[in-house]
Design a protein around this nucleic acid. Structure first.
Length: 573
RNA sequence: GAUUCCGUAGCUCAGCUGGUAGAGCAUAACACUUUUAAUGUUGGGGUCCUGGGUUCGAAUCCCAGCGGGAUCACCA
């Protein structure tokens, strides 16, 4: 798909042609050996000026200030920006001043990648700058970047903030708003510090199927696809829990996986259809042990990102150092509503919900009703890390029955800043109990709960061979990253959040025009004249098009060979 | 899915009770050898999201659609 080109895009394409005519390859293949970075120079030039007498940098031109035979520009590399100083007679020591007068001043643009060699110095106004002695073009940019300007006080003018454009064109966002890169650097630290911690404990990183014949391990609607060779439906995983447990059956003591999960549900600022989760299963442990492990792990993560365990999230200071508060689900409901739901049956729970003003429907079982009360009345109050423990058995088909409390399971969820971050069980390893619990899910599914779990016979078979007592944990990585980077929306912590497809511009491709005989270099001109598809062109008057082509050539000062009339007429046949 | 706000130049945005579209930056030309939101002078650049309707006349009012934001609902 191509779109009609703007004036600036046409000019940049014309500059591209002129560069080639000057014998300059706008997209050279050679390695460019970089020896210095903007941030390092800014940090260390003052102390070690001798180290910067010969530097090579590469990056994009972001600002130009041309003053006759000398110019300043700002070069942006992966680490930051640095000012460069170009003097005509320094980069063009001989008679030929083309490199400065034409290439730099006329044919290069904001956004182009260049390489510079030179020495670092201090300008009269005291700005650390690179005095350029050699300048090369590394890659020509054909689309103009949005211009974001910063003044002396650091105020940002003309900020590029439209969320739609930032998410759809993340490459533009991170180029002109490089401060957002830090979120993704911190995201990487969250994941790598967790992985380091697990590996140090001797746990084993694994990969399990994303395409699953049965979608198990969680309650959610899946994406369905189809495998042609097997001629069967496959589901994108909503969880990997049942596969990781199979690996515990197989004899690994500790297995973990970072991976994408896919849920065909709503999208909002905390939900993306694909999201990242970490699940870990450790043999011979229980959920009490797991709480201590999570405390240790999250403190390490917070320190990896911030250096300290205390993280500012919105108006709250969250302390990730353990131990965290522990509250049973029933106690938490009692604490925040004053109602004791521990002995209620389904009918009593329904009455309680209506008294509390909570909407329910007929498909909801006892477990779901309790969860509704919890979600509505308790969750938002849990700011500091808090373990909610001992859930009703009905809402947790994969957790072991509580060792002492009837009707409950050994489960905790970790809430931080009012959001669920982690979920853990003493895993159910009694195959007969597991079968009954999954059968109860089928009953719920029959009542219309489309999130009830499916039966997985192979998983049950694995349990029948024997799974050691095991504790398992899942952590929502995106939400953890949101906490660690103080972001309110999941889109800000995903490079490429899901968006509706862009509206298709109703224009033909350049190839469509070329196929009817239009020279490639004239296609943008036709677009400029308003012909965005071959059909539009063919419905025009051929003689007028021929005349207008000449007019456009003159108007845009295009250095193109005018096609002869017969060729233009042939476009209309 | 509901409610609500928004969609104008490459970018950020003005545009009143309807009268043929404006600014800053970017861009083009000229000047300028230490500037830094560089500066000065002069230009060019628009499917006012799309499609209907009302009207002598619509960027503006009405309807529908598309896209996005926010809030709510859904979502362990």
């Amino acid at each position: 798909m191509s779109t009609a080109l703007s004036e600036q895009e046409l000019l940049r394409r014309e500059s591209l042609n002129q560069l080639r005519e000057l014998g300059i390859n706008p997209y050279p293949a050679d390695e460019y050996k970089v020896t210095a970075f903007a941030q390092d120079i800014a940090d260390n030039f003052g102390r070690f000026p001798d180290n910067y007498k010969k530097v090579t940098l590469a990056g994009r031109i972001m600002i130009r200030r041309i003053m006759g035979n000398a110019s300043f520009a700002e070069l942006q590399d992966s680490s930051g920006r640095i000012q460069i100083y170009l003097k005509r007679d320094d980069i063009c020591p001989g008679e030929d001043k083309t490199l400065y007068n034409t290439v730099f001043k006329k044919l290069m643009d904001i956004g182009d990648y260049i390489g510079v060699k030179g020495f670092v110095f201090l300008t009269q106004t005291g700005e650390i700058s690179v005095h350029v002695q050699e300048l090369v073009l590394l890659s020509k940019a054909l689309k103009p970047l949005p211009i974001v300007r910063r003044d002396e006080e650091g105020n940002i003018h003309d900020a590029f903030t439209d969320p739609e454009m930032r998410y759809r064109q993340r490459y533009v966002d991170l180029t002109v708003n490089p401060e957002f890169k830090q979120i993704f650097v911190n995201r990487s630290k969250v994941i790598s510090s967790m992985r380091d911690y697990f590996n140090k404990q001797g746990w084993f990183e694994v990969e399990t199927p994303i395409l699953q014949p049965v979608h198990g391990g969680a309650a959610a609607r899946p994406f369905v696809t189809h495998h042609n060779t097997l001629d069967m439906p496959l589901y994108l995983r909503i969880a990997n829990e049942l596969y990781l447990k199979r690996l515990i059956v197989a004899g690994f003591d500790g297995v973990y996986e970072f991976g994408k999960m896919f849920r065909n549900e709503g999208m909002d600022r905390t939900h993306n259809p694909e999201f990242s989760a970490m699940e870990i299963y450790i043999a011979y442990k229980d959920y009490i042990w797991m709480m201590a492990m999570v405390e240790q792990c999250l403190e390490i993560v917070a320190r990896a990102v911030h250096g300290i365990p205390v993280v500012q999230v919105g108006a709250n200071e969250i302390n990730f150092a353990g131990p965290y508060e522990k509250l049973s689900m029933y106690d938490s409901i009692q604490k925040y509503t004053g109602v004791d739901v521990s002995t209620m049956d389904e009918a009593a729970l329904r009455r309680t919900c209506s008294e509390l003003g909570i909407e329910v429907d007929d498909t909801m079982g006892k477990g779901k009703l309790i969860d509704e009360i919890f979600s509505a009345k308790v969750e938002a109050n849990l700011i500091q890390p808090t373990y909610i423990t001992d859930y009703p058995i009905e809402m947790t088909p994969l957790a072991k029955k509580h060792r002492t409390k009837d009707g409950l399971v050994e489960r905790f969820e970790l809430f931080i800043n009012g959001k669920e971050i982690a979920n853990a069980y003493s895993e159910l390893n009694d195959p007969i109990d597991q079968r009954e619990r999954l059968e109860e899910q089928l009953v719920l599914a029959g009542r219309g709960d489309h999130e009830a779990m499916a039966m997985d016979e192979d998983f049950l078979r694995a349990l029948e061979y024997g799974m050691p007592p095991t504790s398992g944990l899942g952590i929502g990585i995106d939400r953890l990253v949101m906490l660690m980077t103080n972001q309110v929306t999941i889109q800000e912590v995903l490079f490429f959040p899901q968006m509706r497809p862009e509206k298709k511009a109703k224009v033909g491709t350049a190839d469509d025009f070329i196929n009817i005989g239009v020279p490639a270099e004239w296609v943008p001109v036709l677009n400029k004249m308003g012909f965005n598809s071959v059909e539009e062109l063919k419905s025009a008057n051929p003689n007028k098009v021929f005349n207008d082509l000449g007019g456009m050539r003159k108007k845009l000062k295009l250095d193109l060979v005018m096609p002869v009339k017969e060729i233009v007429m042939a476009w209309f046949e």
